[in-house]
Amino acid sequence: MSERKVVDARDSFCPGPLMELIANIRLIEVGSELELLSKDKGSAEEVPAWLTKVGHQHISTEKRGDHWSIVVKRVK
């Protein structure tokens, strides 16, 4: 598996964490993981909801101080 890509969207009011995830998941290979960092509490619910809709895998969500770390896997 290739190195996990980190997308730091903690200071992103626009386009925001989920838009960054959608843009960046296309840039990693199928089977690879991506870690999204977000200060937006909505990301912890919105990101897994979107992953379910499109069929990518939600690996984990972890609160780290002032932000969330959400790990996802591109599966198609």
């Binding site: 009011f13 626009c14 386009p15 925001g16 989920l18 838009m19 959608i22 919105e46 909801a49 979107w50």
Partner: peptide
């Protein structure tokens, strides 16, 4: 693309 009508809340 996301769950609201614009990226800017």
């Amino acid at each position: 693309p996301i769950g609201r009508l614009h990226a800017l809340e």
